[in-house]
């Protein structure tokens, strides 16, 4: 079964099953991955599901759309491959996707 990987700020690896069609945020919430809040429920309107996509996967995820980009701009911890995980739709070709969790969600 394909999986996705979350690396917590302390370096702990958390693996979760990839569910096609779901967002990465939803998978994190359903698997109680620590460090993802997802307060707005997937609307790119709160910024509390921020992840940093691993360098190796940087080119394989889509670019943030406008609404997401604006929420990311407000985040002082934003990095080059930052995304809101609610805006990453999972498909089979993202099996093994690795993202890093920031120290804080804002």
């Amino acid at each position: 079964m394909a999986t996705v990987n979350f690396v917590t700020f302390d370096g702990e690896q958390v693996e979760a099953p990839l569910v096609e069609g779901q967002s990465l945020m939803q998978v994190a919430i359903d698997n109680a991955v620590p460090g993802i809040d997802g307060d707005c429920g997937g609307e790119a309107a709160c910024g509390t599901c921020h992840v940093v996509v691993d360098q190796q996967w940087a080119g394989r995820c889509s670019e943030p759309a406008d609404a997401e980009e604006q929420m990311l701009e407000m985040n002082p911890d934003r990095q080059a491959t930052s995304r809101l995980s609610c805006q990453i739709a999972l498909s089979d070709d993202l099996g093994g996707l690795t993202v890093h969790l920031p120290e804080f969600q804002f």
């Binding site: 809040d37 707005c40 429920g41 910024g47 604006q70």
Partner: peptide, 14 residues
């Protein structure tokens, strides 16, 4: 789902 309350607002002005 208490965390999804509106009291902080959503979007740019959260």
């Amino acid at each position: 789902n208490a965390r999804s309350h509106l009291s902080f607002g959503f979007g740019l002005h959260r």
